[in-house]
Amino acid sequence: MSDILPLIVAKYNFWLYIILMMIGLYAMIAKNNLMKKLVGMNIFQTAIILFYVSIGYKHGATIPIIQGGHGGHSAHDAVIHAADYINPLPHVLMLTAIVVSVATFGVAMALCVRIYQRYQTLEEDELRMRVSERITHE
């Protein structure tokens, strides 16, 4: 037990994100309501976004905007050290992922609205019942 504690402390960000991710996964598997499943999916996506952003972090570094880079010529004088700025690449990837998650969430909610208009419910078991009723009627 005394060996595992420093391991957790050094990587506590990953532990938190995995717990968050599992909350989302549980909601997606076990919840009956489609909207709750979507909320679970959003939690899952958020956990992955946080995970990526935390990978880019470096101790003692600042945000990836070069200081004094505005003037154009002044930037050439100062040498830029990679250790002074956090890794910008995970941020770029996750900016993309956030936009896609918003777009897919919008489409998913539109689908939910259509399902509700047709079957008057968003509960999964009731939906399954209504769909089978519809098939037997036809």
Binding site: K11, F14, S54, G56, K58, I66, I80, L89
Partner: peptide, 19 residues
């Protein structure tokens, strides 16, 4: 580890971009 400047994600490609 969290915030390790020598982690694989922050050593190969990102240095080129930052510099």
């Amino acid at each position: 580890d969290w915030g390790d400047p020598g982690s694989p994600a922050s050593t190969h490609l990102s240095d080129y971009y930052i510099e």
